[in-house]
Write a protein that binds this DNA or RNA. Structure first.
Lengths: 348, 348
DNA sequence: CTGAAAGCGCTTACAG
DNA sequence: CTGAAAGCGCTTACAG
C-alpha cells in the first residue's frame, strides 16, 4: 500500500509538494506536478481518505436517510442521488430509516453525529427539530427531499397542487362521486406528503362544492403500496352504498392496487370507474394509468447539486437547475399530468 | 466537538486508558471504566472513526455493489444487508453498478480500492477476476450474493434446481407445450442467474423428452422486469402458431408482465395458460402467482453474518445460519415452491 | 491495571 | 514555488 511518502521519494520532492500536486491546492510548478502525477500513477497511489479527512475535516461522503428502498419513488431517488454523488467523487452512506423508534435515534445520535458524513440528504421522511439540530449543530448541510425538515432547505413537488390537479381532471370529466385513497397517516400529519395530497383533494372538491364519496369517512387511508391500495379499494368498492365513479389515489402504487381490486370485483374500467394516481411509476404506461408524473431520478440529481453547492464544491461537473434561489425559499419540482386510458367521462 | 483528551481529563485518566475503557480492548479496572464512560456520556463524546481507522486499519464500513435498487430482489437484499450492518455497528456504502464500462471500473479502481471499506458484498452481479483481485489484493473479504465472483465465497439459491422445480410443476400438471421467458443474457452467460435458470428449464424438459414451445428459438429472452416480460410475452403469445399452454418465467416480474400480456390478448388464465415464476415477489400473492420463493431479505442478513465472520467479528449479536461450512463450499440458500391460482392442469 | 510516547497518513500554515 | 515541522484524533506496544 503505497503512501504519499513513496510518491514524494520517487518524484524527488517533499511530501508537502506531493500533496499539493495531487490535491491541486497550492502552487506547484507544472513540471513538478507532472513528475508527481507520473510517480503516483506508476505505483498506483491512492490517498487514504481517512488521513485526509482527519486533517481537512471533509470526508467526501454524504449520508442518505430513506425509509424504503423498495418503493418506486424511493428507489428512483436513490439511484439518482448515487449516480450524481459518484460522479462528484463522493461516497453515499445509506441509512434505511424506520419510521421512528430506537433504530432511528441510533442513526442520528450515533451514525450521523460522528464525523463521517459531510452532509445529509433526507428522502421522504419528516424529521423532527431535534434530528435536524443534531446535524446542523455540527454545521453540516442537511436537505429534505420529498419530506420535511424544520429549518432545512426543502426540495419537493407541490403535492397539494398535484392532488388538486388530479382531482380537477376527474371533475372536468364530469365525475361527482369521487373518492380519495389517501396515504396512511395523511389525517394525522397535515404537512406530510400524504397530508398535503389529501388537502389538495379536499380543496378541489370544496371548490367544486362536492363532498368526497366513499362511506364513513371523507377519505380512506391506505398503505402507500400496491397491496395497500388493493385492500383499501376492496373496502371502498365492495361497499353496497353508492359506489364512486372515480378514485384519486395518493400514489400510483395505490392506484394499481385499486385497479386490481376493481378487476376482482368485476367493475368495468374505465367506463364505470376512472382512476388517477400521482407519481409516473414505471408501470403506469403499461397499465394505462392516468397520473401526475414526477421525476424522482432527476430530483435526486438536483438534491445532490444543491448539497454540493452548500458544501462549496465548485459548479464543476454538476449544474444546478434549481437556479440561484435562496436556500430557505422553496421552488416546487416539476410535475405533469399524463392522461391515459384509466380515466374517462363519468357514466351517465 | 469533544475529543478523547477531554474525556480523559474529565475522568482523571490518560488518553490511553480512556481509549481502552471505551473500546473495550485491554485491561481497565471496572471502577475506572465506569468513570470514563460517565465522562464520555456527560460531554456527548463520540470517537472519530477516521482517527480510529487510521491506526487500526478498520473502517467499520462495508461496500455493497448492486446493479439495481429498484427491482424487488435487489431492494429486499439491500434492506436486509442494511439492517444487519447497522445493528453490527457498520456503515453501508452503496455503489450502484452499471453493467460494465468506465463507471464500473471507477468504482473498483478508485472507490473500492481506497481504504474506506473493510469488505465488499457484491449482489447479483458477475464480477471479473480482475475486479475480485482488486479487493482481495488488499486482503479484504469479498462475497457474492446471487451472482458470481471467481475465487470468492458465493451465496445463492440453486437457480438451476429452482428452475427445474418450477418446470416440473408444470409437467406434472400435464403441460407439454411449455415456453420459457428467460432473463436477458441467459444465452450468453451460462453461469449467470438467468443462464442457470434457463439451463434448469431445458434440463427438466429434456428429462421429460419434450421440446420447449415458443417459435423460433428455444426460449425467449426478456428484460427481468414487468415491462420486459410484457413485451416478450406479447411476442410469444401473439404468435399465430401453436400457443404454449404454460410459461415458466425466469422471475416473478417477468411473470407479472406475461399475465398482463395474456389479459390484453384475452387468453383466459389459468384455464388456457398457466404461469409460474421465481422469486416470491411481494405482489405474487395478490396476483395469485405460483412461484418458487426465495428470501432476499434473509439472504442479505446471511451475507452480512458471513462477512462479519470473515472480518473476525465475534459471533456477538449476529448468528450465522450458514453454519460452519468452509468459505469456498457452497450451500444453496432456501427456496420453496408455492402453488397458487396461476397454474392448473393443462387444457385437454 | 495505567501512563508516556510513538505513529497511522495525510494537509497546512510558516518560512524561505 | 518548495520543504521542515506540526498536528488532525485516535490506538497500541512498551514500561512500569
Amino acid at each position: 500500500m503505497p503512501a504519499i511518502g513513496d510518491v514524494a521519494r520517487l518524484a524527488g520532492v517533499s511530501k508537502a509538494t506531493a500533496s499539493r500536486a495531487l490535491t491541486g491546492r497550492g502552487y506547484v510548478a507544472d513540471e513538478t506536478r507532472r513528475r508527481v502525477e507520473a510517480a503516483a500513477a506508476r505505483i498506483g497511489y491512492i490517498a487514504s481518505p481517512d488521513a485526509a479527512s482527519l486533517v481537512t475535516g471533509r470526508t467526501k461522503n454524504v449520508g442518505v436517510v430513506i425509509p424504503f428502498v423498495n418503493r418506486w419513488f424511493f428507489g428512483e431517488v436513490l439511484e439518482g442521488i448515487e449516480r450524481s454523488l459518484l460522479s462528484a467523487g463522493y461516497d453515499l452512506t445509506l441509512y434505511n430509516l424506520a419510521q421512528s423508534g430506537p433504530h432511528r435515534d441510533r442513526v442520528f445520535d450515533f451514525f450521523l453525529a460522528r464525523k463521517r458524513v459531510d452532509a445529509v440528504i433526507a428522502v421522504g421522511v419528516d424529521l423532527t427539530e431535534r434530528e435536524v439540530e443534531v446535524i446542523t449543530r455540527r454545521s453540516k448541510p442537511i436537505i429534505a427531499l420529498g419530506g420535511t425538515a424544520p429549518g432545512a432547505p426543502r426540495l419537493a413537488i407541490d403535492d397539494r397542487a398535484a392532488a388538486s390537479l388530479a382531482t380537477e381532471h376527474l371533475l372536468k370529466l364530469g365525475h361527482v362521486r369521487i373518492a380519495h385513497l389517501a396515504g396512511a397517516g395523511s389525517g394525522a400529519a397535515a404537512r406530510s406528503v400524504q397530508g398535503l395530497r389529501r388537502a389538495g383533494f379536499l380543496q378541489a372538491m370544496d371548490v367544486a362544492e362536492l363532498a368526497p364519496a366513499g362511506g364513513i369517512d371523507d377519505v380512506i387511508e391506505a398503505e402507500m403500496s400496491l397491496p395497500g391500495g388493493y385492500a383499501a379499494a376492496l373496502q371502498l368498492l365492495g361497499h353496497p352504498g353508492d359506489r364512486p365513479t372515480a378514485i384519486f389515489a395518493a400514489s400510483d402504487e395505490i392506484a394499481f392496487g385499486a385497479m386490481r381490486a376493481a378487476e376482482r370485483l368485476g367493475i368495468p374500467m374505465p367506463t364505470e370507474l376512472s382512476i388517477v394516481g400521482i407519481d409516473g411509476h414505471e408501470y403506469a404506461e403499461l397499465f394505462g394509468l392516468t397520473t401526475v408524473e414526477q421525476y424522482p431520478g432527476e430530483q435526486g440529481r438536483i438534491a445532490v447539486a444543491r448539497v454540493m453547492r452548500m458544501l462549496g464544491e465548485g459548479p464543476s461537473a454538476l449544474e444546478d437547475p434549481g437556479g440561484a434561489e435562496s436556500d430557505v425559499e422553496w421552488t416546487p419540482l416539476a410535475t405533469r399530468l399524463v392522461v391515459r386510458s384509466s380515466t374517462t367521462a363519468a357514466p351517465r
